[in-house]
């Protein structure tokens, strides 16, 4: 028991360091650029923005004449207070407020599609590894590898074109219907699911192959172990061997991979949101890029990084539950 607590605390310490590194990177990047960030901002926004907006931007970055250490500490202080500066694109709204509005949608879309892809992919991997000489094993891996080769956002464009614009089966933007009142009511949930269906489908489609292949490969090597042969010899029903004996062990690398893939999947979700005009972080990021809204961009980077780190920690706890070796 104590070992588990130690393990979880150690992992938490690592994520704390990683979060700190991301914060520092976020602070350093503008200051490492050729020329100083203040003059870059002035050059890019001269004539485009009101002077008070430029001042707000300088303030967001803590670009004062103080020595860099003092700037750094005041930056850390404001981040800890949840102050991410002022947005340029949505001036004068604070960045934290804008991000807060879109965060739920991203977690909803990315979370749902990741879990679905993981479940379906892992199940398919178990099945095709078990029936390794069957037709499925010769057809599925190359097909899914082929679809996995398309860029996320391009497949999203094609899906949107086919099912949204040409066939009119699905909505072409937004997260819920225009006329619907957001809140805890049934029409809203149905509308939200209906709007999320197509973006989620693209995400599941592209990422399915990876889960399936890695599950298949570990499953095959697990099936070759002696304890599986022994289980067969004892006459244990094959279904039990497949699920309780082999799959239970083979799923561990996939679970670790789940944490690793989070960041990658989230990046895909961001791009997909942009295509579907889905009002999450990706859509915000696109607007931030187009308006060169640096505070918003960096706020999104911080938020997403923290979300990924937190989710990774949860995955670590899940692994503790599934893998007794980590408890020893």
């Amino acid at each position: 028991m104590n070992k588990s607590v130690l393990y979880i605390t150690r992992r938490f310490g690592f994520y704390l360091i990683a979060a700190f590194a991301a914060l520092t990177l976020n602070f350093i990047i503008p200051r490492l650029m050729p020329g100083d960030p203040a003059s870059i901002i002035f050059a890019r926004f001269k004539g485009k923005l009101k002077p008070e907006a430029i001042d707000a931007m300088r303030e967001s970055f803590g670009l004062t004449n103080d020595p860099i250490f003092i700037q750094y500490f005041s930056y850390l202080k404001s981040i800890l207070k949840g102050d991410l500066g002022t947005s340029i694109a949505y001036f004068p709204a604070p960045v934290s407020e804008i991000i807060g509005n879109g965060l739920g949608w991203t977690i909803f879309l990315a979370g749902i599609s990741m879990i679905i892809a993981f479940l379906i992919g892992t199940t398919l991997g178990i099945i095709i590894a078990w029936n390794r000489t069957g037709k499925l094993d010769t057809i599925l891996p190359p097909t899914l590898a082929f679809f996995g080769a398309f860029p996320y956002f391009w497949l999203a464009m094609v899906f949107l074109y086919l099912f949204g614009f040409s066939l009119n089966w699905f909505p072409i933007g937004r997260a819920y219907g225009n006329e619907i009142n957001p809140g805890y009511n049934l029409p809203f949930f149905i509308s939200a699911l209906y709007h999320a269906f197509l973006p989620a489908l693209t995400l599941v489609f592209v990422s399915l192959g990876g889960w399936m292949l890695s599950m298949r490969n570990t499953m095959i090597s697990t099936l070759g172990s002696d304890y599986i042969t022994f289980a067969h010899a004892k006459g244990i029903p094959s279904k039990l061997i497949m699920l309780r004996y082999a799959a239970r062990n083979a799923i561990l690398p996939n679970l670790t991979g789940f944490g690793m893939a989070l960041g990658f999947m989230l990046s895909g979700a961001l791009l997909t949101e942009m295509i579907f005009s889905y009002p999450g972080q990706g859509f915000l990021l696109l607007q931030a890029v187009q308006a060169q809204d640096y505070p918003l961009m960096q706020g999104i980077f911080m938020t997403i990084t923290l979300a990924v780190l937190g989710a990774n920690w949860l995955v670590d706890i899940a692994i503790l539950f599934f893998d007794p070796r980590t408890r020893k």
Binding site: L262, G263, F264, S267, L270, M297, I300, F301, T305, N312
Partner: peptide, 8 residues
């Protein structure tokens, strides 16, 4: 590894 690539 753990930092999300696209926003960075």
């Amino acid at each position: 590894l753990v930092m999300p690539g696209l926003p960075l």
